[in-house]
């Protein structure tokens, strides 16, 4: 297990390098010269030239990339073109909010999704199963930003139960967390159901029946644990979708998190900020995947054999 974790951690290094390279290359595709952009309108050629030199833009591209990575590793993602403050500082202000939102949403995804999936599977083809599956189908089809707006309309505007926007208290969290977590919950519910139904067909469930065990013991003791193993992977993947989804949810609910920071940065063409934001979100996701892999390994000891 320990060896596995070490090996898995080492494996993330090339992935992280790759991610930083992709982000770096994407920013190279930007039409126009960052120095010209930075210098602003009416800057003289000399100013632009000296700025290019200062930013290292006159050096070979590979050199620039290595330079970028070396700085990024030390937490230096450059300065925001808009506020002239270090990118990392601005991100660190916003990141806790986004992580809070993401955790609240993943809670909804996991708890709601699994419970619904288990009910569905144990009562296959019942009215409960059919309605859960219909809701889940809707769940994966609704645009989250629209769901958010409709929730605001019903619960905040009409019923005035929750604040329309902003962040800070528990009641601020509920609607955004549902908005962001609903799609994942639908996917987890579908996955849990099909996984449970698959497990129920296994020979060891027949063995459990042959022992004369009660149905609920068969399902919860012998079925659930096996059924949830593949669900763990799905939850891990959902975390990524969810982290990306904060961009939309934060925009709908006017939450000043990382997602909104990135979108605003794209609008104002604050490229270092976009670069830093996307990179940090990806790093978080990579480490989240690492954690999921370790968890998966822990629950599924059978991998030992392979």
């Amino acid at each position: 297990m320990f060896v596995f974790i070490i090996r898995r951690v080492l494996q993330t290094i090339p992935v992280l390098l790759g991610v930083s390279l992709v982000v770096f290359l994407i920013m190279q595709m930007v039409p126009g010269d960052p120095a010209t952009l930075l210098a602003g309108e009416g800057a003289t050629k000399e100013t632009i030239e000296s700025l290019r030199h200062e930013l290292g833009l006159d050096r070979p591209i590979l050199y620039q990339y290595v330079d970028y990575v070396l700085h990024a590793v030390q937490g230096d993602f450059g300065e925001s073109l808009r506020s002239s403050r270090p990118v990392l500082d601005e991100i660190m202000v916003r990141l806790p909010i986004t992580l809070e939102l993401a955790l609240a949403s993943i809670f909804i995804t996991v708890v709601l999704g699994m419970i619904a999936g288990i009910i569905s599977a144990t009562k296959q083809y019942s009215a409960a199963d059919i309605s859960i599956m219909i809701v889940a189908l809707l769940g994966i089809s609704l645009p989250s930003f629209w769901l958010g707006l409709m929730l605001i309309y019903f619960f905040s505007v009409n019923l005035q139960l929750f604040p329309v926007s902003g962040w800070g208290t528990f009641s601020h969290m509920i609607l955004p967390a549902i908005t962001l977590g609903a799609g994942g919950a639908a996917i987890v519910a579908r996955m849990t159901r099909s996984s449970m139904l698959e497990v129920v067909r296994q020979d060891y469930i027949r063995t459990a029946r042959a022992k004369g065990l009660k149905e609920h013991i068969i399902i919860y003791k012998h079925g659930l644990k096996n059924a949830l193993i593949p669900v763990i992977t799905v939850v891990g993947l959902q975390f990524g979708a969810l982290l990306g989804g904060t961009v939309l949810t934060e925009s709908v609910f006017a939450i000043n998190g990382l997602g909104r920071l990135i979108v605003d940065a794209i609008r104002t063409r604050d490229l270092p900020m976009v670069q830093g934001g996307v990179l940090i979100a990806s790093v978080i996701f990579v480490f989240m995947n690492l954690a999921v892999d370790v968890l998966y390994r822990y629950f599924n000891k059978r991998i030992d054999l392979n």
Partner: peptide, 16 residues
């Protein structure tokens, strides 16, 4: 009445 199944690889629950 008891039954002992063939194939212990699949007839026994892998997580216990």
């Amino acid at each position: 009445i008891s039954m002992i199944f063939q194939e212990p690889m699949t007839s026994l629950n892998p997580v216990y």
